[in-house]
Structures are given as C-alpha cells and as structure tokens.
Write a protein that binds this DNA or RNA. Structure first.
Length: 756
DNA sequence: TACTAAGCTCTTTTT
DNA sequence: GAGCTTAGTA
C-alpha cells in the first residue's frame, strides 16, 4: 500500500502500525519509540479515511495526553477531531455513566468521590460500627475495597466468595465485608461513585443492559487503548465487551513499563492479547528516537535482569552521549544542594532552559529538600502531584458547597460544610443526624431538610434549619445561573470569602488567594467559547472531578525545573534527568521486596525513569535521610550497582562534604543521633534492617593491594586492609571512611583505585 | 461549642 | 515533619 504523504515522517514499522486499521492489533512499543506519534497518526489516518470521528474511542492514561493528542490530530485533519471520544478510562466512562445513569438508578448528576471522600466515609462507617480502627485501618480497608472492585468483585460477590471471607476472618478482620457493604450502600444513597465505581459500574452497565452495550458497540467502531500494560481486569472486561462487535481494537503498550500493579493492573492483559484475538497483528517498535546510546544501553542492561518480559530489542542510532553521573551526598539536604547545583551548572554549560530538567523521585515527600535548594538559588520550579490545588482544604470547602447544590444527597460534601464556617452545629448534632438517616435509610440531606420532623435533633434544630434554608436557596438558583455566578454567590453568602479575607496570617492570605483563583478558574470555564459544554455548575464539577495536577494549566512564560514521582513521569521526556533518592528501602521501596515480581516492578520503574532522559542522566543518593522526625542511615540502592560500569562516568565520584556541615542542617534536636554522628561519623538506626548485599559486576580492578586507596560507587572512599585469595573471586576487606569495614568480592565489585 | 496544646500515627506509587 | 485526634479549658 502506498502511504499517504502526511505519514512521511514515520519509519517503516510505525507506518505499518498506522496503516493496519482493521481487526485486532497490538503494538509493542519500546521506550522512546514514538508510540504517541503512531497512535496520533493512526487516528488521523482513520479520520482521513472518512471514518467519522465519533466512531473512534481512544483511551489514554492521562487527560493531558488525550488533549495533546487531540490537538495534534486537529492539526492534521481539522475540526472533525473534536468529535473524537478521547480521554482517560475514568473520564470517558464517567461521561457514559452520566448518560445512562438511570439504568443503574443513579442520578445523572452523581458525585465522584475522590480518595479523601472515600476514606473519610470508611472511617465514619468504622466508627459507627464501633470497630477498632487500629485493626480496621481505613487505609487498608480502602485499598482492599478498591482491589476488590478492580477485580470486579462487588460486595455481594465478595460475601459469597468463601476464600475471601475466610481470609478476612483469619487476618482478624471478619467484619470487612460488612464495611464494604455499608460503604457501597452509603455511596449509592449519596448518589456518589468513587474512582473504582466508574469502572466497575460501566462494566455492570454493559453486562446487565445488552441494549446499552449494543448502542456503544455500534458507536465505537474503532477502539484504541494506550498504555495497555497498565490496565486492570475491570478495564480489560469493558474493552473486551465493547470491541466484541467489530474487533477493530488496537492496543499499545510496553510490558517493560508496567508500573501500576498496585492498583490492579495486570501484565497478563498484554501477554494474553494474542490468546484473546487469535488473528491479531503484532507490530514492534524498537528504534528509540529519544535517548543517547548510553542511556538506551544502560536501560537495556537493567531491564534484562527481569525474567517476566516480552522479547524485544530496543536500539538507537543516536549519538553515544555523555556517561551517567552518580552524585553521592551525606544527607537529603545535601543531596538537594548537589543536584540543584548540578542543574545550575549544566544549564550554564548547555545553554538550555530550566524547562529541560526534571527531578524524579520514588515518593512524593522526597520533593522537600529539592524545593528548598531550588528556592535558595531562585530557580523556578514546578511540582507535579502531591497535594494538588483541588485537594487544598479551602478549595475543597467551596467545592463541597457546590457539590451539595448539584447533588444534595452527597454525604461527604454535607459533612464537610454543615458546620463550616461555624454555625453551631457540633459533632453531637451531626451524630444525631447520621443516626436518624441510618435508621430511616435516607440520606443526610433528607434529615437536614426535614429537621423539624425529627425531635431527636433537639436544640440545634433551629441552626440546622437555617443551614437547610440557605442551601435550598442556592439550589433554587442552580438552573437559572451559570457556574461562576452561582459559585461566587455561594462564596459570599456562606461567609467563606469574608472569613478567609479577615485572616491576615500568611496561611490565611494564601488560602484567600486560592479561593480567588478557584473562582477565576470557574469564570474562565463559563467564558470559554471554544468548548461546547454547557456552562452550568454541574458540568463544571464533572470537568474538575477527574482532573489531576498534571492537567492543570501551564503558564508557559517561565521555563521551570519539573519535580515529580517516577509514576507521573510516564510518557514524558526531558533532556536532563536526575533520578534521586536511590537508596535501598526507598527505591526499591522496602514494601516491594517481598517477592521477585515486586522487585521486578520496581526495576521496571527504574527503567521508566532512566528512559525519560534524552541527553544526560544523573543518579543521586544520600547516606542518611530525615524521615518522620528521625534520621535514618541509608545504604545506596542495589539499582546503582546494576548499572554496567561502561555507562558510568569515570571521573571520581563527587566527594561529599562531611559531618560538620551536615550537622548544621536539619538534624533537628535529636541529641543522641547527633552525638553518635559526631563520635563515629555514621549513624545507625532501628530502621536500617536489611544487611547490605555485596553483589557487584565485574570491574576493571585486577591489581589491588593492601594499603591502596580505593573508591566504590556505593560506599565512597576507603582503604584496602586485607586481601583474600579465592581463585578468581578474590575477596577484599576495605575500611571505608563513611560506612566502616566491608568485605567485597572482587570479581563483582566496582572498585576504582585512587592511589597505590 | 470553640479553641489550644499535647500526643499519636503516618512509612509508596494514582485515576 | 505534618496532619489528625484527644483532653482540657474558656
């Protein structure tokens, strides 16, 4: 087939994947192989073939990815691209669920509970059931419920699954199923779905209502799924059903980048694709356009250590590029300083903007030390993830009012604001309202609205009545006013704005500013002419409920250093990448060391991080770190050792400043730790559980003698004190300046001789 | 009912 | 270190 000219920029493998539009297709796309391009052009090509865009469903991993792709497609084939059904699983299915809500007896204005809402509801249920929240930890319960839902196990199904129930019994949580039931019931009563419900209820909708399924099967003649390796059983089931009629399904993924098993994703989906669709065509994209040979090579060596993977060989014709640098520091604060200093110097040297840099970490809390260091040098930065704008208390408070206006049954919203700002409705009154609503199996709002009928509520009834009347006045405005008018009215009437405006502390001022920013955002939404969406409040709330931090509008004026977790860096690329906090038990996480499968997922995470880099990769670790108020001593991560010597910079590893300077910074008031640090130069703590394993690859160190000064990539500088001959595998005992004595097996160890 | 101080608990990643 | 709960006080 002659490829049309707009596909000229693609290579052969990419072109084939684009042109093969009918039947089941799986594209295995290595990191940096132009996966997004292929997907984009594939959709554009379909539209060019006169397939109506509304017949195409494209599921992406983030809203941002969807938006960018849509913009790109629009460039190629014009405004028809607007009719594409494109977005995350959650947002697309939320849209379908709103249309079909009555089939599931939900209001079409159902609320979407975020994790906080869900957890506090679970907490409340545990309390109401008078269970011990030390045994029934809301977090664990939430995860277990979420897990069940991701595997399509409803509360009813759970109750009749004897293995699950007996597991709970054995692990001391026999009442779990009752919590699950109560939670599901309360969500339903509140007209609310949590994130997992959006998927599970879609599956339920299609399963129970064949006519609805038929309608969408007919509508979505072409289905494309990005990041297929990170789909879970529930998503799999939905896609399978939807695609059953036409089987024009194209999935794109990379098993080496599967990093979401914790939320139910199963790599089996991608491995089983050929079993599900016997006549599936498979395309492999193996040429990497993103990174230097050094980076591609190092990443390949790392991932090769995993057993579970599809065969593929990622390669590149890019230049060799600079070697990987390892930065070692004594504390997390010093790590921040060294990394930021390196960014500063690199920027000078390469004349690139700060937008070309990213700092990647395993956990959100690690951002702190880098923020501080960046602020000190006045380098602009932006943090993705963590507490996002919409998670802030003041923002959630106003949104809770708005949610309640749209869906009065929303329990989480009502609890949040019934006494905020304070209006003399205390906890005991709220407890009575909850009790009354549980007895009558009604929503909280029904009780609040008809408070006069319930003598139980007592003296506070008048206050509740006043609150109820105020809310009703807002509700009556709902249909005649746009989102902004209503929101600003609510902000004023409830006293929220005034309350924060009067607070002149720095915190109060910033809260006030956030509220104003929120209102401005709503204004922008109502004034946006490019979108055909209705401008009412309920549409606005739908829009924001599934937004994440990555979707927030960029101000592109100042280029900024990005900070994010590795998970949220998926799909992104930067010329200069710093992977930080490479310490054992942190990355790989100590919670992921229970099985080979878990460790392999951590390794895939490392692989994802490495392959974000285009030009230069830097790794850093600290040998001690503050966490939860205590100082932990850290061992460098095993992942550092897994990097082959040939990819590492040979110049001496930057030596760190020593204890005195570290002492001045952030060691808090833990006197015993400080004195231990002063005496011994190292800190041991109860948290350091795992022994260091010595498991290194061959280095270029055959001529070592006692007395040599050596440097090791993990342990820093030291002096050889004893050699033990054991054939090829000579052992060497080294006294390291910082970590003391270690025995290394020479044929595996990466030792560099500094002086003989 | 509202506010404050002291105490306890977090230890992963996200839609 | 932060965020939340509890106990004690106004």
């Amino acid at each position: 087939m002659q490829a049309p000219p707009y596909l000229d920029s693609l290579n052969e493998a990419q072109k084939q994947a684009v042109l093969h539009t009918s039947g089941p297709v799986m594209i295995i796309a290595g990191a940096g192989s132009g996966k997004t391009r292929v997907l984009t052009y594939r959709i554009a090509h379909l539209i060019r073939q006169e397939i109506p865009a509304y017949n195409i469903l494209a599921l992406t991993f983030t809203n941002k990815a969807a938006k960018e792709m849509q913009a790109r497609i629009m460039e190629i084939c014009g405004s028809e691209a607007r009719n594409l059904w494109m977005g995350t699983f959650h947002s697309v299915f939320a849209k379908i669920l709103r249309i079909e809500a009555d089939r599931l007896n939900y209001p079409s204005s159902f609320t979407i509970y975020d994790t906080d809402d869900s957890k506090s509801l679970i907490k409340a249920i545990i309390k109401e059931m008078q269970l011990d929240d030390k045994i029934y930890k809301p977090n664990i319960i939430y995860n277990r419920i979420s897990n069940a839902k991701n595997n399509l196990i409803t509360a009813e199904a759970y109750a009749s699954a004897s293995d699950l129930v007996s597991y709970d019994f054995k692990s001391g949580r026999p009442k779990f199923i009752e919590i699950y039931r109560a939670y599901a019931n309360r969500c339903f009563k509140a007209g609310a779905m949590d994130f997992d419900d959006l998927l599970m209820n879609t599956d339920k909708l299609f399963r129970m209502h064949p006519d609805v399924l038929l309608k969408y099967q007919h509508k979505f003649k072409y289905i494309m799924v990005d990041e297929y390796q990170d789909t879970n059983i529930c998503q799999y089931s939905i896609i399978k059903r939807l695609a059953a009629a036409h089987e024009n399904i194209c999935v794109v993924g990379d098993d080496a980048q599967s990093i979401y098993s914790f939320r139910g994703a199963t790599i089996q989906n991608i491995l089983n694709f050929q079993r599900d669709y016997r006549d599936a065509s498979i395309f492999k994209l193996e040429q990497n356009y993103r990174s230097t040979q050094t980076i591609v090579g190092a990443a390949g060596h790392i991932i090769a250590k995993n057993k579970d993977q599809l065969e593929k060989e990622v390669w590149t014709s890019n230049e060799e590029g600079e070697k990987i640098r390892i930065i070692r520091a004594v504390t997390d604060n010093e790590e921040g300083r060294l990394v930021v200093q390196s960014i500063f110097e690199q920027r000078m040297k390469s004349q690139e903007s700060y937008g070309s840099f990213v700092i990647l970490y395993r956990t959100n809390y690690q951002s702190r030390s880098f923020e501080e260091a960046l602020r000190k040098l006045s380098i602009p930065y932006r943090i993705y993830g963590g507490t996002s704008f919409y998670q802030r208390k003041e923002v959630k408070d106003l949104i809770a009012y708005l949610r309640l206006v749209v869906n009065p049954n929303d329990e989480a919203a009502l609890k949040r604001i019934i006494n905020y700002p304070a209006r003399k409705i205390g906890n005991s009154t709220l407890d009575k309202i909850i009790l009354t609503s549980n007895q009558g199996n009604t929503s909280l709002w029904e009780v609040v609205k008809n408070v006069a009928q319930f003598p139980l509520i007592g003296r506070s009834a008048a206050h509740v009545q006043r609150f109820s009347l105020m809310m009703q006045s807002f509700m009556s405005m709902k249909d005649a006013h746009n989102a902004y008018d209503l929101a600003s009215h609510v902000a004023k009437q409830t006293g929220l704005l005034k309350f924060l405006h009067e607070d002149k502390t720095t915190e109060g001022i910033s809260k006030y500013e956030n509220l104003v920013e929120l209102l401005n955002g709503i204004k922008e939404f109502t004034e946006d002419d490019t979108s055909e969406l209705s401008k009412d409040l309920s549409t606005y709330l739908q829009e924001i409920s599934l937004l994440t931090d990555a979707d927030k509008k960029e101000d592109n004026e100042t280029p900024k250093v990005s900070l994010m977790t590795i998970h949220s860096s998926k799909g992104l690329e930067y010329p200069f990448v710093y992977i930080v906090g490479l310490e054992e038990n942190l990355f790989p996480s100590q919670m992921a060391l229970n099985s080979r499968a878990e460790l392999e997922e951590e390794r895939r995470l490392f692989y994802v991080a490495i392959t974000r880099a285009e030009k230069k990769l830097n790794l850093s670790f600290a040998t001690s770190r503050f966490r939860f108020g205590s100082l932990l001593s850290c061992e460098p991560s095993r992942f550092i050792d897994e990097i082959d010597n040939q990819f590492l910079e040979l110049q001496p590893i930057k030596s760190s400043s020593h204890q005195p300077s570290a002492l001045n910074k952030g060691f808090g008031n833990n006197k015993s730790l400080i004195s231990s640090l002063q005496k011994t130069g190292k800190v041991t703590s109860q948290f350091s559980k795992r022994p260091i394993d010595i498991n290194f690859k061959a280095g270029d160190t055959s001529n070592i003698d006692s007395g040599d000064q050596v440097e090791h990539n993990r342990f820093g500088k030291g002096k050889v004190i004893l050699l033990e001959g054991e054939g090829n595998a000579r052992k060497v005992k080294v006294l390291f300046e910082e970590v003391g004595e270690k025995t290394l097996v020479l044929s595996f160890a990466k030792l560099r001789i500094i002086s003989s």
